[in-house]
Design a protein around this nucleic acid. Sequence first.
DNA 1: TAATCTGAACTAGACGTTTAGTTTAGTTAA
DNA 2: TTAACTAAACTAAACGTCTAGTTCAGATTA
Lengths: 207, 207
Amino acid sequence: MSPRTEHTANRGGADSEIQAHPTGPRSRRVHDATLRATRELLAEGGLAAATVDAIAARSGVSKATIYKHWPSRTAVAAEAFGGMMGDALPLPDTGSAVGDFTAQVRQVSAFYATQPVFAQLLASCVTDPSGSPYFRKFFLAGRREAIATLWQRAIDRGEANPDVDVETATDLVFGPLIFRLMSGHRPLTPEEADKVTAAALGGLLRK
Amino acid sequence: MSPRTEHTANRGGADSEIQAHPTGPRSRRVHDATLRATRELLAEGGLAAATVDAIAARSGVSKATIYKHWPSRTAVAAEAFGGMMGDALPLPDTGSAVGDFTAQVRQVSAFYATQPVFAQLLASCVTDPSGSPYFRKFFLAGRREAIATLWQRAIDRGEANPDVDVETATDLVFGPLIFRLMSGHRPLTPEEADKVTAAALGGLLRK
DNA sequence: TAATCTGAACTAGACGTTTAGTTTAGTTAA
DNA sequence: TTAACTAAACTAAACGTCTAGTTCAGATTA
């Protein structure tokens, strides 16, 4: 079940930070219309164009109702944009850890570089913490799952260092990309992606 | 010479993205007063408290003049806060690459975790690109220099992998911290910092 | 005198809230 | 079966509040 088509209200549990919202057939239509309009606006003009007024105007859903379903503009945008990342990033299966990680980091790097909305959303979560759970659920969760799969394969093959946990491994390969994305001190080219992957896999110290 | 006490206007060159500004004795006073007031406001209430009106009111410098010296609020805040990072992060010298890097990453991690302004500034640069050069000059440059020193030592001792360039090494150790800082998916504790350092130094693959 | 700064008003735009009234889905009861 | 009812959900529009950045006449100072 994709999170994008799930409309059941959330009442506690692992995702308790995600706001509960009405769930009837009317609400489902409203929910979908809001997300669709938001995706269009994000594609056209980035996060800045997806103001709540613009979303309301285009979707035909009133502002008051939008705020019944989401806690903030950032949350709406994160849920709306979230699915696009997973769709754009197929899970590689090259037969080796080096191949798998290299391919995945290149893909993610290219996605970041060509989709400014990603950086805008991440930045928005800093000033609007209510958006963070949405960002994690609809954006990061898929990436972390993908890496977990690659990692387990590498462990099974005896290629991965079992002293490293998968969370640390994930952050080690994606962290540098995020850093560059945010501060802009280095480009996000495929060559740079490969250098990061090689350094992460091989380590900084001499063997 | 510290960047914080440098008041010469910038006319082209490596920092050409930094805006030129008036340089006489009056301007120097104005410049300093603005930065001092901004630092106070940042310390008291984070970036949100350092509005341009508040900076003008506290410093006695008018808004119009502030905008003669900096291109945006983000730029003022980045220059104002920049120096505090270097001051808080002494360069370690433990005698080994593992020791040096572990110490430095722990320090930086603690700084990020306790200084919300850092994340706020980084986020602000995404929506206000004119702030990025200031952030890089007054924030990142010092960190990159520090790592360059540690890295050169490690190379000289034969500990570091010479196939990795210092830029990649820097991003590999700090990237994961930045990533966690922005998305909040993992805490920035000393234990986590050590795990990141160990993974970065040793690599993800089995030896 | 000529560059620089002040002060204050002004523009433009956003978020999120509120209010008053309407629509809908579903349930009860005749 | 069908009519009436109810509670939840939605709409529309205005409102309050905040902020970044601009403009300009006049005072200050190097």
